[in-house]
Simulated scan of single mutants.
Amino acid sequence: MLAPALPTTPIVGHGPYPAPVNGPISARFGAPRVTGGLNWQGIVFQAVAGTPVRAIAPGMVLYAGPLRGYEQIVIVQIAHSLLAIYGHLGATDVHVGEQVSTGRQVGSVGSGGELGNDGLYFEMRNAGHPVNPLYYIHN
């Protein structure tokens, strides 16, 4: 089982897409949550509330709005069975059905809430299953 990364530990992904925000990763995929329950199914970027969150790749917005446990969330389908999920947003800037391009602002970082600190929760799903986002992004 992976241990949570220290906030100052640089973590570099191996994928072709840019990170949705710049900042250290404070929770890694598969690491246990401090509050218990399921292990992290995504990663958490530390970022100041209000920081723009950008689409990592072109795709279509499947959902934009509130979701229990995620605050405001945006889900973008970027390939046939690949989803990028941007959670813990303070605001969303896109609408269902909208096509987004790489770098398009989809929302902004939220404050506090379930994460406990300001930051972006970012998850990737392939065929409905969570996969390590660091396989898809670089930072």
Rank of each mutant, 00 (worst) to 15 (best):
Q72V: 02
G42E: 08
N39C: 06
G65A: 00
P58F: 08
A47Q: 07
G37Y: 05
I43Q: 00
P66M: 13
V48M: 10
M60R: 08
G42V: 03
L67I: 10
A55H: 06
I56E: 04
L62D: 07
T51W: 07
I73R: 05
V61M: 13
G65E: 06
A57P: 00
I56D: 04
R68K: 11
P66W: 02
P52E: 04
I56R: 00
V53F: 12
M60V: 12
P66D: 15
A57M: 00
A49E: 14
Q46C: 12
A55C: 04
V61P: 11
A57H: 04
E71R: 09
V48G: 14
F45D: 14
L38P: 07
I56V: 03
Q41G: 12
Q46H: 15
I43G: 03
N39E: 02
G50V: 02
G37A: 02
I73Q: 05
P66F: 06
L67E: 15
Q46G: 15
V44Q: 08
P66K: 12
R68I: 11
I73S: 07
T51G: 07
T51R: 01
G59P: 14
Q72H: 11
G69Y: 12
P52D: 12
G37R: 10
M60I: 01
V44D: 15
P66H: 01
A57G: 00
G59L: 06
G69F: 05
A49F: 08
V44W: 13
G69W: 13
V61E: 09
L67A: 13
L38F: 10
A57T: 00
I73E: 12
T51L: 10
V61C: 09
L38W: 02
A57R: 00
G65F: 03
V53C: 08
G69M: 12
G50W: 10
A64C: 02
V53W: 15
Y70G: 05
Y70I: 06
G69V: 07
G37E: 03
A49L: 02
P52H: 13
E71Q: 13
I73Y: 05
Q46L: 13
A57I: 01
V61K: 08
N39L: 07
I43W: 06
Y70L: 11
A64T: 00
G42R: 05
Y63K: 10
W40C: 00
G59K: 01
A49D: 11
P66R: 03
F45P: 10
E71M: 12
W40G: 05
R54A: 14
A47R: 03
G50K: 01
Y63G: 08
Q46I: 03
A64S: 11
T51K: 04
P52R: 01
N39R: 03
R68L: 09
T51N: 14
